[in-house]
Design a protein around this nucleic acid. Structure first.
Lengths: 336, 336
DNA sequence: AGGTTGTGCGCAATCGTTTGCGCTTGTTTC
DNA sequence: GAAACAAGCGCAAACGATTGCGCACAACCT
């Protein structure tokens, strides 16, 4: 009920608010506060269980011990996992995470980033959905900013992403090497960099092998996977001999569709996926896929962000933007 | 570079900070601000793209448009999914989410809850780890508070949880009915209400059927599932004919262990799981399980929280605590 | 003319911290 | 005995918003 602020402690101890503040924020040394004062004040603070008001602290210091995390769809297991990893890593460094969801909308992304600003977050980790980095770079000038999972072609911002081109190429080449010649790729959000790069990698491999490749789909969702697979494999005269699902959600939808058509991976056609859900090993057959090292990406992103934050804190020269394409790995199982 | 605050707008328009504030927070009517003033001020605000400083706003109003979400382990897919759902639902209501992770530690839980307080969150959704509700109730008096997934036996707080007792009973009875007589249950964190209730339900069913039931394990993790299953089924003289995994993480570990021992669900023993990961349908065999309606729980929790918030906002009498045990459903597949 | 009512706006306190600067004392130095 | 310095602490101005109260003026009524 009764409030505990610097003021009340100040009144109860007879010391000024300034002194109380300095003692309780551990600056007693620096300001040469007497031992007596330190003791009296800490005692009182302990007794009344004083906790600084973080809002007031943020207002005054323009810091908040909080990082803003912006993803385009937290309901997607991929981003849920990625978020979980980032939240965990930030927590380990004593930072809290404010999570926002842009829902693949540029407008929402704008809102969220502005919200982050006006809350004085100390840094931002963002899976961008916009087509141009201007806004991000502008904000990045004031607030340490790292792009994750998606990036911009030309930008001064740091980013940590999977090398989706190479990954898709690897997957496709593996299919080709296994003898599949007419591959259906089901992609995610076409405007997103990962999908585009995967399409590029896919087509590049298919073309240089003189095979046939088709790209369909428009979302990183189970439904999209189901719909597109169903549509493609329902047509009697289709001639696909393999499917490349661009995410594990798409894969699940695809498998559902195949089942409903009595088709089985490996037996009736080749199936390969892009993504890193451990449970792919538990499917029957286990799914061959290109795995993204999600934890590594999250961890590098957090690390990069803190490097920038540290540099700014000590007004050192900004480290050169770290622009990383993490190599995914082909995990061979039994689906093709 | 140039700041935009009420003060700067005030200077540029010639109106006082008060007037600018009232116009920009939509209270022009209420305070009878002239049309001229409203126009001049909104124009200036638009032009300089003014955004209120949410930190200052929070400090003044004690509101933050933010809900604190506390879970005991965001890296666990169950909580990752639950968090994602809650974050999404809160977002839809215009609220942001501050996520904290207690890591199953009471101390961390305490910290997080205090942090929430001192940040003036407008409400808290919490998966508790403490054994007693005192702290939670105390905070609940100041801040709308809802428990999710775990609850306390005697509490005045609202909670939304799965009926774990009934769920476990259902699962076990199904196994018994299928003829299994010696069941190994691998549980999660033993101190947690869900695990305890599931153990109760399990033993209750086993005992009243005169069958044998054993409980082992101590974490909601893949590793725990692997370790316990491996240990149990490695012993040549073991006589278990079925496994009940208390979560899908535990299940995955169990399956790994079984595989390593050349054992297969359904063929060699019965397997049943507690949890709601859609991908259980994609395993071979598909896993029979008790499903918790996660989205429903999240949604009810959010709804309940907002009911409390609304009541307090209008200083209506607090609604009676809503204490809900959601019924899980048995989803029969092919693993037993 | 004097009183009432209404309109449009500003003053200043408040939320709880942080921090630059400077004011007292007391001690040392030459 | 004056100057110089250190030790220990407080004043007051920020940070940027909100809001109760009241002031000034015009319009209206009797």
């Amino acid at each position: 009920m009764e409030k505990n602020t610097l003021l009340t402690i100040s009144e109860r101890t007879g010391y000024s608010v300034s002194t109380v503040s300095r003692v309780l924020s551990g600056k007693a040394q620096k300001y040469r506060i007497s031992q007596a004062a330190v003791e009296r004040i800490t005692q009182e603070a302990n007794q009344c269980d004083y906790r600084p008001n973080l809002v007031a602290q943020s207002l005054r210091t323009q810091k908040s011990q909080t990082i803003g995390l912006l993803v385009p769809g937290i309901e997607n297991p991929f981003f849920a996992t990625l978020s979980a990893i980032v939240i965990e890593l930030l927590g380990a460094r004593g930072y809290h995470t404010l999570v926002a969801d842009s829902g693949e909308s540029e407008q929402e992304e704008l809102n969220a980033l502005q919200m982050f600003q006006s809350r004085s977050v100390d840094g931002i980790i963002c899976v961008p959905v916009s087509s141009s980095p201007e806004l991000h770079e502008k904000i990045g000038r004031r607030i340490p900013f790292v792009l994750l999972d998606r990036y911009f072609k030309e930008t001064t911002l740091s980013y940590i992403c999977t090398d989706n081109f190479t990954g898709a190429r690897m997957a496709t080449e593996y299919l080709l090497q296994k003898g599949y010649r007419n591959i259906l790729a089901i992609q995610g959000v076409p405007a997103s960099m990962p999908s585009q790069e995967r399409v590029r990698g896919f087509l590049s491999a298919v073309n240089s092998a003189g095979a046939r490749g088709t790209v369909v789909g428009d979302a990183f969702s189970v439904e999209n996977g189901f719909r597109e697979a169903k549509k493609a494999f329902s047509r009697p005269q289709h001639s696909y001999d393999a499917v490349f699902a661009f995410s594990s959600t798409i894969l699940l939808g695809t498998i559902q569709a195949l089942r409903s058509l009595q088709l089985k991976p490996a037996r009736d056609l080749g199936v390969i996926s892009f993504d890193n859900n451990g449970f792919l090993d538990f499917l029957d057959p286990a799914i061959t896929r290109v795995e993204q090292p999600l934890r590594e990406a999250g961890s590098k992103a957090v690390e990069t962000l803190f490097d920038i934050m540290d540099a700014r804190r000590h007004s050192l020269p900004e480290p050169a933007p770290r622009q990383l394409l993490i190599q995914p790995t082909l995990v061979v199982r039994d689906s093709c």
